[in-house]
């Protein structure tokens, strides 16, 4: 069933019909904002994004710019399993896998690109990751670049740990953890 909403448009009264008073009223609103902003610039609500940002509220579960987590030795936790690329509904992740010569975890991403101009910030990549390697907790809102190239995050842009890391979670991280312990 399609619900139908009936709108009763009120007929215009005399003052509205003669047009000019309403124009003056409109200009008055604009002028009021103009002079308030001119005299008290601190109260302007608009932010000059992306140069200026507003701090995001609290510890809410927000999906913000992606990052790739690092192991204790600085290598990416990602093992290029392509789960995020498979889950991504926007086809914005591009991975090329490569092989470690000695590290027992065997596989790592030689290329890991996220095209932010395509990303829909849905968080499916984080859900899909079996290695706890990708996160969207940087609290940075992506966007606001001048070229398309600036919207492309490469592996180097993505690799970063937050304070308190590295974490040792993840499915095949057993191999990596053993390897790291062996190196000590």
């Amino acid at each position: 069933m399609i619900s139908v909403k009936k709108v009763n448009n009120r007929p215009l009264n005399f003052l509205e019909r003669i047009y000019l008073p309403e124009i003056v009223r409109g200009i008055a609103v604009t002028a009021r904002h103009f002079f308030t902003n001119l005299l008290r610039p601190g109260n302007i609500l608009t932010v000059r994004y992306p140069e200026q940002t507003i701090p995001l509220p609290g510890a809410a579960n927000q999906r913000t710019r992606h990052r790739l987590k690092l192991r204790a030795d600085g290598s990416p936790k990602c093992v290029a399993c392509f789960m995020c690329q498979t889950a991504c509904p926007a086809y914005c992740i591009h991975i090329e896998a490569a092989e470690y010569a000695e590290n027992s975890v065997e596989k790592y991403p030689a290329v890991f690109d996220i095209d932010l101009s395509r990303c829909v910030v849905c968080g499916m990549c984080v859900e899909a990751c079996p290695e706890d390697a990708i996160a969207m907790d940087t609290k940075e809102i992506p966007g606001g670049a001048l070229t398309r190239r600036d919207m492309l995050l490469t592996k180097e842009d993505l690799l970063r740990n937050l304070p308190g890391e590295p974490s040792l979670l993840g499915a095949s991280n057993r191999l990596a953890n053993e390897y790291l312990e062996g190196k000590k």
């Binding site: 093992v79 399993c81 975890v105 596989k107 079996p130 499915a171 095949s172 191999l175």
Partner: peptide, 11 residues
């Protein structure tokens, strides 16, 4: 089984 499907080509 090592459950290393993320790095296994057979997956």
């Amino acid at each position: 089984h090592p459950l290393d499907c993320p790095i296994c080509d057979q997956a």
